Simulated assay, not measured.
Amino acid sequence: MNLAKISESWPTVQPSAFKGKDLLRIDEFSGDELLYLLQSALHLKQLQKSGQQYEPLKGKTLGMIFDKASTRTRVSFEVGMYQLGGMGMFLSGKELQLGRGEPISDTAQVLSRYIDAIMIRTYSHADVEQLAKYASIPIINGLTDMFHPCQALADMMTILEHKGRLQGVKLAYVGDGNNVANSLVLAAALLGVDVSVAAPPGYNMSEEIVKTAQQYADESGASLTFTDDPVQAVTGADAIYTDVWTSMGFEAENEVRLKAFQGYQIDQQLARHAAADYIFLHCLPAHRGEEVAADIIDGRHSVVFDQAENRLHAQKAVLAAVI
Rank of each mutant, 00 (worst) to 15 (best):
T61A: 15
L44D: 09
A321H: 10
I120W: 00
T107L: 05
H148K: 12
L3P: 01
L98T: 10
G236P: 06
R100V: 07
R72V: 10
T122K: 04
G31R: 03
T73F: 00
V180C: 09
A308Q: 05
E207K: 13
Q151K: 09
G85H: 06
A317G: 04
S9V: 13
L166D: 07
Q14Y: 00
D194F: 05
E291Q: 06
A198N: 09
A69I: 00
A188F: 05
I140D: 09
Q307M: 01
A108Y: 06
Y241D: 00
F18C: 08
G249L: 12
Y216R: 10
R165Q: 15
A154S: 14
E95T: 11
E161V: 12
S220Q: 04
Y54H: 15
M81G: 04
V231S: 06
M81V: 06
A321G: 02
S76N: 13
F226N: 06
E28Y: 09
D218Y: 00
L224H: 12
E207R: 12
E251Q: 08
K94D: 15
E253Q: 14
P200T: 08
S206A: 13
V185T: 11
P201S: 06
L171Y: 04
P200G: 10
L224R: 13
Y134T: 10
D228M: 13
A117W: 06
S92E: 07
G80M: 00
F90N: 06
H287I: 07
K163M: 11
D27S: 14
D155K: 01
Q215Y: 07
V180Q: 02
